[in-house]
Amino acid sequence: MFEDLRELYQEVIFDHNRNPRNFRVMENYDRMVEGFNPLCGDRLTLFLKMDGDLITDASFQGSGCAISTASVSLMTEIVKDKTEAQADALFKTFHEMTTGKEEHINLEAVGKLAVLAGVREYPARVKCATLAWHTLDAALKNEQQSISTE
């Protein structure tokens, strides 16, 4: 019945939505930022543990739709043991993948995150996928306690 949606709602997304990874409060975090999408009310809190410019641990709390939950869950997995610069580069590629006009995106560069490429076709849902990354960006810049997509 939902053939058209299979690109968007891949099994991996359902899996991460049902069993989000790194879904926990971090006790000794170095960075904590709240991300908020006022359009839909989605809220997440991202925690980072840093060692210099290396992200040694990432976790989150909050509630959102399947796309935003899967996106933040995947993100916490992939940024672990990455440097700030590497995480930033991932953010840029991810952003391009979800919003870009480019026909050819290097899906290999984003690894597992490629399952979220489908949101490109659903402009109303792009922010669901990018909320996590904007929150990470704010955490890495270490300037704000909360960000909003609007």
């Binding site: 939902f2 968007l8 709602y9 509630s63 739709c65 796309i67 939950t69 659903y122 669901c128």
Partner: peptide, 10 residues
């Protein structure tokens, strides 16, 4: 547990 946004898109 199904978020309203997912309901809307589906």
């Amino acid at each position: 547990k199904i978020h309203p946004h997912d309901i809307g898109t589906m």
